[in-house]
Amino acid sequence: MRSKFDEQLALLHKELMTMGALCESAIALAAAAMEGGDTTKTQKVFDYSAQIAHKERDIEGMCMRLLLQQQPVAKDLRVISSALKMVTDMQRIGNNSGDIAEIVNMGHIKAAHDKLHIQDMAQATIKMVTESIDAFVKNDAALAKAVIAYDDVVDDHFDRIKTALIDLLRAHDADGEYVLDLLMIAKYLERMGDHAVNIAEWVIFSITGRK
């Protein structure tokens, strides 16, 4: 009786998965580009970021059409309204990946940053983004809750990196551009963790009706 609507919902789900996969690729590649200032990688991050922005507009259009045509209620309404909110956070993740790539392109990030464990922070953030999207795909509220809890890990990384950078400045052991660029990267990663938390919260809302 509602096969057309079910088809449209399945397509929406598929599109969100595609957009989520693009976010995972963008952030992973941005983290990899930090390693050696690799500009072929950063260019690819920009491409992903553009694709993500495009997907956001496509999915928004789908959601608006579904709201108009199907006048959804209950779980259908929750899924579609959650999708509308989630794509904004995914698009920001794409943007933040692009921001990191831009910083890498400036060439101030050197191998010395390893001892600050920025890669550990990047991996923790990738884990949050990946699992928030997994929680959506698998309709898994418990996994979404775990993502929200894991934000503390990313926040702790940020605090440690900030402290380490301040120590470097105090010791006059680093140039200012390097320190500020690294702090910006850490901040972008921390923001991406927050966006993953938002996605996880919308997953929980779509399942339980509560945020």
Partner: peptide, 18 residues
């Protein structure tokens, strides 16, 4: 009822499943 029905039969009816 229309945002978060408690009973699956309500959900199935209002979402047009039967």
């Amino acid at each position: 009822i229309f945002a978060m029905p408690r009973d699956k039969r309500t959900e199935d009816y209002i979402t047009g499943r039967f």
